[in-house]
Design a protein around this nucleic acid. Structure first.
Lengths: 357, 357
DNA sequence: GTTTCGAGTCGAATCGATTCGAAACCCTCG
DNA sequence: CGAGGGTTTCGAATCGATTCGACTCGAAAC
């Protein structure tokens, strides 16, 4: 027997000890191909004696051309991305499906505005697929790189590249649906709080130039367009500077509500539940009661246990969306080429909307 | 030139096209060893022409014995683990350091109570190290497996295995410090809300049998012991059924506060800020004002923007803790063998504690 | 008694890089 | 003109498995 010092035992060591060839030992561990019971037992015994914990994952991956990991691209600092409960719900559903493959999720942080710097970070990673689930709108240099590598890509809407398989919703229709609900309650002075139209957008009123009707697949744009379809292009619309965040919602809410009463909207339609929560808190800080003095709607349908309201929202079922994403990934790894799908969303009326006073 | 159909170009293809040997081409991409400028340019040009995006990560990893990924073990569903802002802060700090290596973080979900099932999930993954940062107390079958594989392990306190390099705090001393603060304000009837002592613990009063003084490194146990050092073993102590959660805190808070006034504690010391938030909301739901009618303390020092209080807490600086963890991992990968470290914590007085009425 | 068949095992090629020692090359100096 | 020295380049071994075709052998079929 070749002594290999301190080194970890390899399949060869095990095979030698069991008195079989490496190929047979391999068959024992992979379970493919026929192996006599006695042989199998001998190999397993040898493995135990040597402290062999299974075939080296790297070698196995190289041969099979599969790493068992898919990348999850996270834009901005982890802390920020994970503050969004919807994103987490998607990830949770995704994990649920991938566990069964089994495949791990490799988190890849992409400090926002860092541009190309994600590519060198991505290049040395072996990934079977990549999911963009925590990314904002706009071009992403990672797309080009991954496409060239032939890594299958998936996302929940952004970036909206043709090479990416999508699990999306009809953003504009959803925007219309929830606006219709507010309108049907009798509200006429209604404002909108959006997520940023572009990665470079800053907090404040939405500049017309940033709203490109062709980009209706981008959540922030599509939902705003839907809102405007119902309430017109003149209705006040502001955007947060940092995506779907409580603080962003609070600031936007304060700016819309801290005005003379006759100018104040009687309802605010927002683009996420977390933003809605911020608006609600801002309203309460100004002494307004929700929904008596102000109706507020959210988007996503996430669970905010600390908020003493059930937000009226468009339920996107993040977990389910993640599961579907996972299924698409799995199918792709199995060799088929799944197509993008559009998921339904549903209006869920809560305790934050009522007819105007 | 060997035609290789649709397949992705390899280093060999590039070398052939550039008229150099594979080894030289390798040197060009890895940057090691001297290469004439002209040769380098020729190789890079060939790479561009062929659409070669860099050496195959799997092959490169196999040769170097390094995968560029560290595992992050997450106990329970992702959704639950990520609800804890402290855990996320740690992860964020960790990511910050690992980005510079560069190394990715591979999330590995370990549905709680699933026992051994994590091992088959772990076995096919190539990991350079593993961090247990989102795990509860108790034995973990993964530890044994990883130790056998020789994968370096790190954690922030649990599990408390000798083979794991730790970044911990003195839980008991911290428990004493914050209890002292409450006591020094004049509180005498004080209750405690703990995280579960054991993975199998259920919500409700903490059974004495579950508090093993030898386990003072386990956060829930150490903090409770510290609390008892100050207020005695008779002081009421309940635990949540689900770790550091808002709902757990709210339920525990209600059970402690919804009693006749003379039995009601004038202060509640909790083991996490999120739990404290739950207790505060429970108190307010019962018509109690914080801190006038009830003082509440947390632990961790995380940011809860939606809570209209600044919680009095022990600041553990999760992000910094994550950074330190990352530094230890990096050192280990560089070949040194770092030792466990103990971090200081600091009392941060907020707006949720005051002398009793 | 030969042929056929299938279960079980094995050898060799392969996945795509990295790395080390040796070879080739071009100068410069004695 | 040959030795010495530095810079580039190259061939071959290696990382640790998987996989495919070929081979062996005993039992069943004819």
């Amino acid at each position: 027997m070749v002594t290999r010092g301190q080194a970890r035992p390899t399949l060869r060591d095990v095979a030698e000890r069991a008195g079989v060839s490496v190929s047979t030992a391999s068959l024992v561990f992979s379970g493919k191909g026929p192996v006599a019971v006695a042989t199998g037992d001998r190999v397993r015994a040898a493995a135990t004696e040597l402290g062999f914990t299974g075939p080296n994952p790297l070698a196995s991956s190289l041969r099979q051309g599969r790493s068992g990991a898919i990348g999850v691209l996270v834009e901005g600092r982890l802390r920020m991305a994970f503050r969004d409960p919807f994103a987490i719900a998607v990830l949770d559903g995704l994990a649920e499906v991938l566990e069964t493959v089994p495949t791990g999720m490799l988190l890849i942080g992409q400090p926002s505005g860092s541009g190309e710097s994600v590519v060198p970070q991505l290049a040395p990673l072996a990934l079977d697929a990549v999911v963009f689930s925590l990314c904002g709108p706009g071009e992403n240099p990672a797309v080009e790189h991954l496409a060239a590598r032939g890594v299958p890509m998936f996302s929940t809407g952004v970036p909206g590249d043709r090479r990416i398989t999508q699990v999306r919703i009809d953003e504009r229709a959803a925007g219309i649906a929830i606006a219709e609900h507010v309108r049907s309650l009798g509200h006429r002075r209604v404002a909108h709080v959006a997520m940023p139209m572009l990665p470079t957008s800053t907090a404040g009123p939405v500049p017309d130039a940033e709203v490109r009707p062709g980009e209706a697949n981008v959540p922030s744009v599509g939902r705003l367009l839907g809102f405007r379809d119902v309430f017109g292009a003149d209705a006040a619309a502001v955007q947060t500077g940092d995506g779907s965040s409580f603080e962003g919602g609070r600031i936007a809410g304060r700016s819309l509500l801290d005005v003379p009463e006759r100018e104040r909207p009687t309802a605010i339609v927002t683009q996420s539940d977390v933003i809605a929560a911020g608006v609600i808190v801002a309203a309460e800080e100004l002494g307004l009661r929700v929904p008596d003095d102000l109706s507020v709607t959210g988007f996503d349908g996430v669970d905010l246990p600390w908020l003493p309201h059930r937000i009226t929202t468009m339920d996107q079922q993040g977990r389910e969306k993640g599961r579907i994403l996972g299924t698409l990934v799995r199918k792709r790894l199995d060799g088929t080429r799944p197509r993008s799908v559009t998921q339904p969303v549903q209006l869920r009326v809560g305790t934050t909307t009522a007819p105007p006073a």
